[in-house]
Each structure stands twice: as C-alpha cells, then as structure tokens.
C-alpha cells in the first residue's frame, strides 16, 4: 500500500514554541503540541476527508502538506519524495477564498498559471476552461466583490485546479457558506473530482460533509492532534444516489463518526475555556492571542 500512496504522512510532529503577538509569553514558554505522531496514507485519486474538533491542528496539518511550514519531526512524502516547500504540485483552497480583490475572476484563475510560466494565450484558454468547469461562464470579468460567497469559492477552486496540481488541499472550504450553497457546492465538488480525477485532501469539522464527500474519513483528536481512526465510506457513486443523506447507511456512518468525535469536541472546548481563563488570569490583552484556530 505504501508504494501506491500519493501522499504519505509519517510520524509527523509539530509544536509551537510561542504564540506570536502576545506579550505574556514568558509564563507559557513551554511548547504547545499541535500535532502528535500523525500517520496517514492517501492513495492516488482518492477523496480523503480529515475531520476533527476546532483547534485540533487540522489547519496546521494542511500548512505542512502545503509546505508552508516544516514538521518538527517525521516526514511528508508526495509520490515518494519529501515535501520541501510550497509548489504548484499542490493547490490550496482556503475557507476565506483568498482571491486577489484587484483581479477579475479570470485573472485570478490565471494567477497560478502565470506563476507556472504559461504563455498569455494558453493561460487565458486554460482559465476559461476551468471557469466553465466550475459553472461560472459569463462571470469572467467580474471582480471578487461583485461575486457571492459561493461564486468566489468556485473561482478559488478553478484557480487551484487550473495549474494542474497533483493534489488539491481544501481547508474547510465551505464553512463560510450558507447551508444551501454549501450542499450545491459539495455535489459540484464531487462532479469536479470525478471529472478531473484529482487526489483531494479535504479538511472540515462537519461530520455530514465528511461522510458525504469522503471515500475515507480520518478522525482527529483534540490537541495535541492525532489520527484517532480512519473510516471507509463505501458508497459506490454518491452522485447517482437521489438523497444520500437520508440513506440508512449514511446515517449509521454519521453516527459512528459522531460517537468518535463527541469526546474530542468537549475536550477541545474545555481546553479552549481553560486557556481563555489562563490568559485572563495572566493579565491584559488576552482574548485575541489565546485561541489558535484550525
């Protein structure tokens, strides 16, 4: 199995020495363990969902996969080679879209292609193709502020797919959207995944979203984040199913994950509370630096 892995996460640890921006550092100079011994194999073309309570280090893991930070120990392999930094072989979709507000939709999609060194004409054609793929033909020349949240996220997905990464990393991409837009985009994402055959690592705190999208779901513990269990979601084709969410198997899996996650969520909330209290006890300027999200 190791040989056919697209991404291998092996014994990855990550700790933060201090939190940036706060002044009462000396008291809590001991490192905060964000991730502890993470092991995960993701196959070529697989849709892997990572679900966990807030503050469990999901986003830290994603930053590591993106190559934006380096693991304290352990390694992450892409096609058997260690990840050494950010690269266009991985595309990221952020919760807050991260579109460049001074660029039109199509120029945003072209951004990664530009970084890749693709010529002007080809760039435009590729960008157009991916805008059509995410169903936003006709909106090419709109600026981000002229688009709805759902549309922005479609453009962000198009931007990440356009430069043809090996792996698509998605960090709670639908969390900021309203429920209906979210469901539409979830099924759209499945369609896009089937059309492109990309390997996707999708991070969420939504259990239903995880079961609906993932071929496998990895459940993380509260901090320090570990992989508690990886569960197979054995639906053949999600998109042919009329109302998958009310399918008894779906409900059963959702409940199973909920059982696994329940304790972690309450522990995470306890951690957050005590941390906030500590920060208050130590004096001023607490609230903001206290909560590390993700």
């Amino acid at each position: 199995m190791t040989t056919e892995s697209k991404i291998s996460i092996r014994h990855v640890h990550k700790a933060f020495g201090i939190q940036r921006g706060s002044k009462q550092l000396k008291a809590e100079n001991q490192p905060v363990y964000a991730l502890q011994d993470i092991n995960l194999e993701v196959r070529q073309g697989e849709f892997m969902v990572i679900v966990g309570p807030s503050g469990c280090g999901k986003s830290t893991l994603l930053d590591l996969l993106a190559g934006l930070t380096k693991p304290g120990s352990g390694q992450i392999l892409l096609d058997g080679k260690a990840i050494s930094g950010p690269n266009l072989d991985r595309g990221i979709v952020f919760q807050q879209y991260a579109l460049f507000p001074w660029k039109t939709a199509i120029a945003n999609v072209e951004f990664g292609l530009e970084a890749k060194g693709v010529g002007r004409k080809e760039r435009r054609e590729t960008a157009q193709r991916f805008i059509d793929l995410v169903g936003l033909g006709g909106f090419e020349h709109r600026y981000p502020h002229e688009l709805s949240g759902g549309m922005k996220q479609r453009i962000a997905i198009a931007r990440s797919l356009a430069y043809d990464p090996e792996v698509l990393l998605m960090d709670e991409p639908f969390a900021a959207l309203d429920a209906q837009t979210r469901e539409t985009l979830q099924s759209e994402l499945l369609r896009i995944w089937e059309a492109t055959g990309k390997t996707i690592i999708f991070i969420t705190h939504g259990i239903e979203e995880a079961v609906y999208l993932g071929q496998r779901v990895a459940i993380m513990t509260s901090r320090p984040g570990r992989i508690k269990r990886v569960i197979d979601i054995p639906f053949e084709s999600r998109r042919s199913e009329e109302d998958l969410r009310s399918n008894p198997d779906f409900v059963k899996l959702r409940h199973e994950i909920w059982e696994l996650l329940k304790d972690e969520v309450s522990r995470a909330q306890e951690q957050e509370k005590s941390k906030t209290l500590d920060a208050y006890a130590e004096g001023r300027s607490s609230a903001k630096g206290g909560v590390r999200h993700g």
Binding site: L68, P86, F111
Partner: peptide, 20 residues
C-alpha cells in the same frame, strides 16, 4: 491570507512583492 495563498503557489519573494 493573500500572502499565504500566493506563497502556496510557489511565488518567489520578488514576484510576491510585485504581484501581491
């Protein structure tokens, strides 16, 4: 976040500065 997004696309510091 814009900086992070651009960096994730492998932009060098110079083009990050110029383009973002």
């Amino acid at each position: 976040l814009l900086v992070k997004s651009a960096r994730s696309m492998g932009l060098s510091s110079v083009s990050l500065f110029r383009k973002v």
